[in-house]
């Protein structure tokens, strides 16, 4: 963990997020420093996505404070520091788009409102090329994304986020639904991002697949953070536990009691 005068990448204190009158997660205390790779685990419906949406400024903050790089989450400055990798089953739409055209969006979102045409500068184009090369898809830049495999499309989404030169990547289930071979490539890509100095916050069901890069695990359960610490402390030998719920309508729990009792655990 890094000690410096720069503000933490993410700082939540007593934060609560929700939509309208409904608060989904509350009492969130979380500080993420530069270079950390944080896996956000938890059962479906526990509030993982709402936490991410809150950081993006897409869910409302109902209480506490949430700051990205020292700026209020949802502000232009905070958004400029985030590279969002949404969960998408497919990138194909009714119109054709090449991998490079999708990645160019990462530059488009960084252009000032008064100069929207600037996403076509030579510097922007080389950033798009570089981003595709980092995810190992340099040779497929001019291919229609609809013809790429699911795993390749995930890498296009990571390249799009990378092209916007973020401090922190927020990834929503980046390895879900891709085969094991491609999961390994995605992990290698993420390692490259970390080597380039990025911070990763990864919402996932598959800590197993990401074990070699994750430095910290955060479990969101019952509308709050129930565990925060080293991934090894999450019941060794069974890291599939985090996606089960112990509540009403969810699948039967297999969450070890150790996790339930380590609330506010090691930071």
């Amino acid at each position: 963990m890094q000690l410096s005068t720069t503000p933490p990448v993410i700082q939540l204190s007593g934060a609560a997020f929700g939509y309208g009158d409904r608060t989904v997660v509350s009492g969130l205390d979380l500080t993420v420093h530069r270079g950390e790779v944080v896996a956000v685990l938890g059962p479906n419906g526990a509030g993982k996505s709402t936490l991410v949406k809150g950081l993006l400024g897409l869910a409302e903050r109902h209480d506490g404070s949430s700051r990205i790089l020292g700026h209020e989450a949802g502000s232009a400055e905070a958004r400029a520091g985030i590279g969002y990798v949404p969960q998408r089953h497919t990138l194909a739409s009714a119109v054709r788009a090449t991998a490079a055209e999708i990645v160019t969006m990462g530059r488009t979102v960084r252009t000032p409102w008064w100069a929207p045409w600037r996403s076509r500068s030579a510097a922007d184009r080389s950033l798009v090329e570089e981003s595709l090369a980092v995810v190992g898809l340099g040779d497929l830049a001019s291919h229609d994304v609809a013809t790429l495999s699911g795993g390749q499309q995930r890498r296009v989404l990571i390249a799009r986020a990378l092209a916007s030169e973020p401090e922190v990547f927020l990834m929503d289930e980046p390895t879900a639904g891709v085969d094991r071979g491609h999961q390994q490539v995605l992990v290698a890509v993420m390692r490259r991002l970390v080597e380039r100095g990025a911070t990763l916050v990864i919402v996932t069901h598959e800590l197993d697949a990401l074990a070699e890069i994750v430095t910290r695990a955060v479990v969101v359960r019952g509308g709050g953070i129930s565990f925060d610490g080293a991934p090894e402390q999450l019941s060794p030998g069974d890291d599939a536990h985090a996606h089960h719920d112990d509540e009403d309508d969810s699948p039967p729990t297999s969450v070890p009691t150790t996790i339930l009792t380590t609330k506010g655990g090691p930071r």
């Binding site: 400024g57 897409l58 985030i82 949404p86 979102v109 916007s164």
Partner: peptide, 9 residues
């Protein structure tokens, strides 16, 4: 192409 991403960004 991606309204959510555009909004978040």
């Amino acid at each position: 192409q991606d309204e959510e991403y555009a909004h978040a960004s």
